[in-house]
Design a protein around this nucleic acid. Structure first.
Lengths: 187, 187
DNA sequence: TGTATATACTAGACACATCATATATTACAC
DNA sequence: GTGTAATATATGATGTGTCTAGTATATACA
């Protein structure tokens, strides 16, 4: 049910169309959540049916008409309930497709795995650079404490994303080194 | 389709029952993949129907009878194909329920978020301790290069899990500090 | 004139994941 | 003898995610 609350949370910041929400998921929260367009439109329909959001049809002449969704009181209460309750176990449900593949990779040539890890490392570094442009680390305490609430929480999540990408790149580098040494040994 | 290959990969190490596989998912690869019992039995049935695995019914007198599954040649080829092919994009599909919640947490009292992060931090530290018992870091190159293949790949994934838990705990600690300062400020 | 890109929404089919529950046996503690 | 944990599997219902493709308009660019 997380997608539902992701959408409600965004709508709580301001009214949006399905298209806006979809863009937001891709561009702004992509490093910790993702959703397909079709999923978002479907969930918006469900949210409206359940009475947590309302929409206004906006007639446009230069672009296709759109449905501008806004959260209502019921939706806000629902969102707050979800924010307030938490189950630690939910935070440890992980899926890492790379690790799953790597775990079984003794079956294939070392060079192929090196190739995979190298491409992964590059992408992590690129993602880290990208995120670093828009945020920093959390060491500038004073500044952060004085930030408005929303940007503070945003920065905390971004810092996590950044740390993640950096750690991933570092780890991939170590794995590559080990695999290269092993490759030499095998020659 | 990752679960399918996770199961095939495990069966490639040795024959197992659904129950064994389920335990394995919980205990050994839990830090990067998880699956429900019902999911595993269903997938085993599908794998057998698709001709990638076979099973032998083992009659037991001390415990309920069981189906001992083993991978066959077709299954092995399938597994190798999956291992060999990779799509980097797949490795960047992430879902982090904690970050999603934190992102919107400006709506609820700071103390509640501190509570959530503290519990998260504790669990990360416990998980890190647990993983560290069974593995180490990747700095002991010489030893690693001489390891047999399977344990090397296993150690690389474990090192990633460990680094992840440690980084998560560190990050949670920083967030807690910032939120505490902000809490004081608000008094 | 053609092509690509951005905006904006809809819908069906299918694949995959999860939940809840059911069945059955043995071992062991209280 | 009653309860509980471990072993072992099965399945219906529901929830969530992905794929595909269709509809429509405007702008930019070559």
């Amino acid at each position: 049910m997380s997608l539902r609350y992701g959408i409600l949370g965004l709508l709580n910041y301001g009214s949006m169309t399905g298209y806006d929400i979809s863009k937001y998921f891709r561009e702004s929260v992509g490093y910790f959540w993702n959703a397909q367009q079709s999923q978002i439109y479907r969930e918006l329909t469900a949210l409206e049916k359940d009475g947590l959001v309302e929409y206004e049809l906006v007639i446009q002449s230069d672009k296709p008409n759109k449905k501008l969704y806004r959260i209502n009181e019921v939706g806000r209460e629902n969102l707050n309930g979800w924010l307030y309750d938490f189950n630690i176990d939910d935070f440890f449900i992980t899926r890492n497709a790379l690790l799953l593949k790597l775990f079984f990779s003794s079956q294939i040539p070392v060079n192929r795995t090196i190739e995979m890890l190298s491409k992964y490392k590059e992408r992590c570094e690129a993602a880290a650079r990208e995120l670093a442009l828009h945020t920093g680390d959390l060491s500038d305490y004073q500044n952060l404490v004085e930030d408005d609430s929303e940007s503070l929480y945003w920065k905390m999540t971004a810092a996590r994303g950044l740390a993640d990408y950096q750690a991933s790149a570092r780890w991939a580098g170590e794995c590559i080194n080990i695999l290269r040494k092993r490759g030499e040994q095998d020659d």
